[in-house]
Computed example of a mutant assay.
Amino acid sequence: MADGRVPEERKRRRPTKTGLLLSEDVIVDCALRLVGQHGPDALSVRRLGAALGCDPSALYRYFHNTDDLLLAVADRIIGGAMEGFEPDTMDWRAGLREMGMRIHRGYRAHPRVAALAAFRVTRRAHEFRAVDTGIGLLLRAGFAPAEAVRWYSVFVDTVLGHAALDAAYMALPDERRGADDLAWGAVYAELPEGEHPHIAAVRPHLSLMAGSSFEGALDLLIGALSAAAP
């Protein structure tokens, strides 16, 4: 199929050896759990088959390959992030901010998947709805169609770019992440003023460099969009 999805007639629900009724949702649930526990190497038909108690070849009735499955997992994250979101009840700026926070939060909850898939196009139902929602908010702001698409691209790349960056950071071992955070208040704060005068001038505030800058970037972007809106 042109879009990479498995035909419906190949998705009949079948029980595994353990009695579990196999389906696309069950496989996605298992993949999401395994990648979260063991990292990208867990996304293999062999490990999924073992975890589900089925022959690995049975998974090909639902997904063409592991990349197809990865896109379905990413789409599940988008769907969960957007669940209950009602942008029609709020100002377009508030709606866009809420949408960005939801998607970023959804990927942060699954950092190992985010590192693999935040930059992918899932071509699935939840992503379709998310794109439609985001462009709709920008059209409501008064942007012309071409501008709405261009600004939505900037918006979603900002959200997903920060999600991937934060996910990679969160996937670090605790001791490395802690060392990086402490460096701003320790190593940087002790740099000699004669060699690094500007760092020395803001020394009491260097700890602000630790953690995510996503909310600040999102607010700057929405402020710029607000100023540019007709």
Rank of each mutant, 00 (worst) to 15 (best):
L139A: 10
D166E: 14
H205R: 15
R76E: 12
T18F: 06
I78W: 09
F128P: 00
V121G: 11
L48I: 03
P173W: 10
A141R: 01
L221K: 01
V26P: 01
E86N: 10
V154S: 14
H198W: 13
D41A: 14
C54H: 00
V45H: 09
I103L: 15
M90Y: 02
H38V: 01
R46K: 09
A179Y: 06
G84L: 11
L208M: 07
A109G: 14
A94T: 09
E8F: 09
S226R: 06
A109Y: 05
L218H: 02
A167R: 02
A179M: 08
R14Y: 10
R13S: 07
F143L: 00
F214M: 08
A146S: 12
L208S: 09
A186W: 08
N65C: 11
A227S: 10
F214N: 05
D157L: 15
D166R: 13
L69R: 10
R13V: 06
I103H: 13
P197K: 15
Y60V: 01
L52V: 02
P87M: 12
G216T: 08
V26L: 14
R61T: 02
S23W: 04
W184G: 00
L96V: 04
S23H: 05
Y169L: 12
D29V: 03
R123C: 08
R14K: 12
L218F: 10
F143C: 01
M209K: 11
K17G: 13
A109K: 08
P230E: 03
V149L: 13
D219P: 00
H205E: 15
P111F: 12
A50W: 00
H38I: 00
D174Q: 15
L138M: 13
R177E: 06
E86G: 01
T122V: 05
D181Y: 11
A2H: 13
L52D: 05
R176I: 05
L71F: 07
D3E: 13
A50E: 14
P192G: 13
T18M: 08
